[in-house]
């Protein structure tokens, strides 16, 4: 990842957004999905992912489900009703942040 600090504040939004697109996901799957979607540009570190997931779970935005896969147990996360609502808010916040940054970094000059 080129600059982890810039992405840090958006980690929860990224997780929530990914979960809207699939029914349920487990931790490792999330890291891989992000890597795949951003073509390796953004790598979510393991040390940051689980704390974020547990925080979202404690806030009631995520629900968990456990299944036996191969020889082990796998913990899946999925959005709760509140989580779905919060995702919409967070995405809106992120969009307006991107627009603001866009205006600051790349202002469009109007000559008329």
């Amino acid at each position: 990842m080129s600059n982890s600090k810039l992405y840090k504040g958006s980690l929860t939004t990224i997780i929530l957004k990914l979960l809207t697109e699939s029914d349920k996901m487990y931790g490792y799957e999330i890291t891989q999905k992000v890597k795949e979607l951003t073509k390796g540009e953004l790598k979510i570190t393991e040390g940051a992912l689980y704390p974020a997931l547990h925080k979202l779970e404690a806030e009631g935005l995520l629900d968990v489900e456990v299944k036996k896969v191969d020889n082990r147990l796998r913990k899946y996360y999925k959005l709760t009703e509140n989580g779905t609502k919060e995702t919409a808010n967070k995405l809106e916040e992120l969009a307006s942040y991107i627009a603001t940054m866009q205006a600051l970094v790349n202002p469009k000059f109007n000559l008329e």
Binding site: T45, G47, A48, Y50, P51, A52, H54, K55, E57, A58
Partner: peptide
């Protein structure tokens, strides 16, 4: 890949989440 603090961060956050 968990970084120099290993599992510390997940442990701490889990504690906080469970307190909550």
């Amino acid at each position: 890949k968990f970084g120099i603090f290993g599992f510390m961060e997940p442990i701490e956050q889990k504690q906080k989440a469970m307190n909550k």
